[in-house]
Design a protein around this nucleic acid. Structure first.
Lengths: 171, 171
DNA sequence: CCGAGATGTCTTGACGTCGAGATACTTTAC
DNA sequence: GTAAAGTATCTCGACGTCAAGACATCTCGG
């Protein structure tokens, strides 16, 4: 488990510190899970940076991307949107307000339910999210450049297995 | 790449939607990176849940754990703490205030620098973080139960390679 | 049909974080 | 030795999120 200095990362240092302080604990899980957490944090920042070029915040992309994925006519209810983006209803109201003010989405009455609303992507919103998505994927491809396709497939498979129990428990 | 229904996860659905809507894009990076992001979100929630038992919030654990890892006498400056926990100085002031109010840490003047302060773990703080850490690791071990040690080591190695560039860039 | 409970959205107030600036002290260069 | 630049911490106002609850509308059993 010894790596040359240049190959050690923050998590190696973290684990080493815990082993020194709590030699009684088995800290092996951190080798995988702390790295997942840490990588996710870095990816978040990289994402924000990629979106900056397109004048989008991460949260804006999240909402626009959900609408874009839905396909024509790019409409979803706020309720559906908050399931997709994992935020609460108050937050979604606020987000839709601001996206509307920016002209990226519009609110339409739901013809089938008078309580309901449909949030629809505008042309500008679609253009924004399409450009940002292409850019994001390009960045991500670069990041993964050093990992063989075989390894990527393997990692994906193991991660799927790890996520499985979670995805199932909420429904 | 076809999996039985029960084996598909949210990311498979996500990717499928993008492929349908943007067949021109190569969405392969999402197989790994979206799963990392998603798993991290789940881990965060699981962490919060594990800490609840010990009356700790995630942010509290983060600060206490940094002090615990430092080893006796469990002291770090606010400046060092904010590097460890990746928050801003205003946030750290606020956190230390609240941890002090709860009796988990105390603020001492730094004898070597009169601008400085040392944040020190109290006995209660140490007990809390030790118990929470043991519990966290137990949960994480369960989570990883279905993954062979060999695979865990492989994943850890690849993740280290992915995190590498990020850890280096800030310093 | 009618009323009770479910559902969809928005409102409101509290809270944690950020970021810029203020203050006090230390270090460096001359 | 002193002035200028650097460093450590805290203060303060703005902002996004959450959680609880208000309100309108829908659904379904009787």
């Amino acid at each position: 488990m010894a790596y040359p200095r240049a190959m050690r990362d923050e998590v190696d240092r973290l684990i080493e510190a815990w082993r020194r302080e709590r030699p009684d604990l088995d800290v092996a899980p951190m080798e995988v899970l702390s790295r997942v957490t840490r990588l996710a944090r870095h990816l978040d920042r990289a994402r924000s940076h990629a979106f900056e070029t397109h004048g989008l915040e991460s949260w804006e992309f999240d909402v626009l991307a959900a609408l874009r994925r839905a396909g024509k006519p790019y409409q979803l209810s706020p309720g559906r949107l908050l399931k997709e983006t994992l935020v609460t209803s108050g937050t979604m109201t606020n987000r839709v307000d601001r996206l509307t003010a920016r002209g990226l989405v519009e609110r339409l009455p739901d013809p089938a339910d008078r309580r309901g609303v449909l949030v629809q992507l505008t042309d500008a919103g679609r253009d924004s999210v399409d450009a940002a998505m292409a850019d994001l994927l390009a960045h991500e491809r670069t990041l993964l450049g050093s990992i063989s396709e075989r390894d990527q497939a393997k990692i994906a498979r193991v991660l799927r297995e790890l996520v499985g129990p979670f995805d199932q428990e909420n429904h």
